[in-house]
Amino acid sequence: MTVIRTARPDELPALLEHPGDAERNAATRAYLGMLLDTGCTRPEWCLVAEDGAGRLVGSVVLWTLPGQDVPYACVLFEAPADEPETGAALLEAAVAKARACGADELEHVVDSPAQAPQFQRDPERRGVLLRESGFRVVRDGRRFALRVPGTLPADDDRLTFRSLADLGPEPFVDLLAELLAETADARLGADVKRWGARQAAARLFEETAELRHEPAWWEIGYDADGSPAVISLPAENPSVAVIGFVGVAPAHRGKGYAASAVVRGTRILAANGAEEIRGDCDAANTAMAKAFTRAGYENFADRLEFSRPL
């Protein structure tokens, strides 16, 4: 009989080891160790499935941003391919623990192709397990990455940038509300339907602000006519520097400003020591995908984002 339980101290940070897969085992161990060290997870948030012979056959770990007490995602979800009931039990245990910690929603992402640190092989099977456990796809995304080169493109001389340190948050929320009203991003569009553009903008600003950043990094780019044209919110998560959010005001779309904003955020992160930068967008947001490509980024993976209300 398979039992779902909290991982013991001696099982951390390795959790479930795969014989003959040293690359996966080392990457997963390092990843969970980093999550524990940075406070993105806690030992009591690390769950395993143990079979009747005492072997670990599955795992799932709750995740949050450093300094937060409420988890809002799960990572390192693994279960035997021939035992869907074990996967379902792990997800239910993660949901119950997240709910007990005060969460009202739990997320999980599935990247393909499989890669470090989670090595999510067989994404179709994972998707079936998630859907049968009450999760739904909230975004079909594309992931981009850039190894920072020695020389970066110059800033767009059509734009004049002013920072959060100079402007304060209100102009940023104003511009976010304007551009979210006409967004191609499925997840953000759902937020607008749920809360309205203004509240969705405020929530997006606050959620992005949970990532590490400096006020001088966040900027609005103004067109030559003086109107706000782009917003750039570069930041760092516990693993890597990110283009946290980029958006173009509806009146200024079609001018190539999205790529200009990506370049601007890239230059700021590189100036502050980033060697690799990542970003993502909705698959339907072709303009944003082109902006990343034009700024030198590579589409290295696709990402399905799942969510379950609790």
Results as ranks from 00 to 15, higher is better:
21 D>N: 11
62 L>C: 11
168 G>E: 10
300 F>D: 15
180 L>R: 06
302 D>V: 11
174 D>V: 10
102 G>I: 04
297 Y>S: 12
51 D>P: 07
294 R>C: 03
192 V>P: 07
262 V>T: 08
204 L>M: 13
178 E>K: 07
49 A>L: 09
244 G>P: 05
116 A>Y: 03
231 I>Q: 09
89 A>F: 08
66 P>G: 08
21 D>S: 09
92 E>Y: 08
192 V>A: 00
99 R>Q: 15
294 R>E: 14
59 S>Q: 15
201 A>Q: 03
155 D>N: 14
43 P>V: 05
117 P>Q: 04
106 L>E: 11
275 E>Y: 05
168 G>A: 07
134 G>M: 06
66 P>V: 04
308 R>F: 09
24 R>H: 14
241 A>P: 12
117 P>S: 04
270 A>Q: 03
160 T>N: 09
41 T>W: 01
162 R>E: 15
247 G>H: 03
44 E>V: 11
54 G>Y: 05
298 E>L: 11
284 A>M: 08
300 F>V: 15
104 D>Y: 00
139 R>C: 13
17 E>Y: 08
29 R>Y: 01
309 P>F: 01
217 W>L: 07
233 L>W: 02
264 R>F: 08
25 N>P: 12
184 A>E: 15
295 A>R: 06
301 A>H: 02
53 A>T: 15
144 F>G: 04
101 C>F: 11
36 L>S: 10
251 A>T: 13
151 T>P: 00
112 S>Q: 13
226 G>H: 07
168 G>C: 06
306 F>Q: 06
